[in-house]
């Protein structure tokens, strides 16, 4: 770890950490990223772990999607995360891609950042611990320093009703919009994927539910304050509409209703 950090420090902003490579390598192929050095952390075995720690679940940064998807500990302590992992990309992506890579890449279309944000997870680096709400500051932007490496993502244990709905054209696509619902400590946590430059926690929905609103009423607040960019797959209006519809469905399905 020390060596990795030192190498990153040496090459500065032009260096990139190589974990699973499933976002970085495609960017390099398109020459959208042209790092002068890649620091491969795949040999740092202590970054590949899933540990129960009281009311917390500590996930090593190098943990692959496929490991999360199949882990009995994750399925038991935070089943939402196992389900989300199973919906990332295709088999090839899940065999290589890592949770630390997704979090550090901070793509608003990534699924884990939404879960991390809505559950108040912590991002641990070789230097400090950063709350998820302070970590995803803008699109592809985090407070990570050039020589800082994500080592762990720490989630609270939550195994109540939950659901993640990833709306997409194709099975292996990114979410056009994603909505997550997790019941926790008597309340709801609601998160949204790909509706802005960062993941979104839909607090207005959470509060409405707290006040006893029905899911379909509460979900109307899912688009409060959203200003998503349009793209080839969806207009901003459609994304806001999906945020409301998917939030309603996620809550209902979490509770076993259709």
């Amino acid at each position: 770890m020390e060596e990795a950090s030192k190498q990153l420090g040496k090459f500065g902003e032009d260096a990139k950490v190589l974990a699973g490579g499933h976002s970085l390598i495609p960017l390099m192929r398109l020459r959208l990223a042209q790092p002068t050095a890649l620091v491969d952390i795949n040999g740092i075995k202590e970054l590949d772990h899933i540990k129960e720690d009281g009311s917390k679940l500590r996930i090593g940064a190098l943990t692959r999607h496929v490991t999360l998807q199949n882990s009995n500990v994750v399925k038991d302590k935070l089943p939402l995360l196992a389900e989300v992992a199973g919906e990332v990309g295709d088999n090839q992506v899940r065999n290589m891609g890592t949770i630390g890579g997704v979090v550090a890449h901070a793509d608003a279309a990534g699924d884990y950042p939404t879960i991390a944000l809505m559950l108040d997870a912590e991002i641990v680096t070789n230097r400090r611990t950063i709350a998820a709400k302070d970590f995803f500051t803008d699109i592809f932007t985090t407070p990570l320093e050039a020589d800082e490496i994500v080592t762990e993502v720490v989630f609270p244990v939550a195994n109540g009703p939950h659901k993640y709905i990833k709306f997409r054209r194709r099975l292996f696509d990114w979410a056009i919009v994603g909505a997550a619902a997790q019941k926790m400590n008597g309340g709801w946590r609601i998160g949204l994927t790909n509706v802005g430059s960062t993941p979104v926690r839909a607090k207005a929905v959470e509060e409405a539910l707290q006040k006893g609103a029905k899911p379909e009423e509460a979900a109307q607040h899912a688009s409060d304050g959203l200003d998503p960019a349009g793209d080839l797959r969806a207009s901003p209006e459609y994304k806001k509409h999906l945020a409301r519809v998917l939030t309603k469905r996620a809550i209902n399905q979490a509770e076993g209703r259709q």
Binding site: L30, R169, R170, L171, F172, D173, W174, L232, R233
Partner: peptide, 25 residues
């Protein structure tokens, strides 16, 4: 295939943007 209607830039230049369905669809 989508081009920008003003500039003629190809917007669907990768298989991420050009949606070929797979076995799931």
């Amino acid at each position: 295939v989508v081009y920008d209607e003003e500039t003629g830039q190809l917007k669907t230049g990768t298989l991420l943007d050009y949606s070929i369905p797979g076995i799931g669809e």
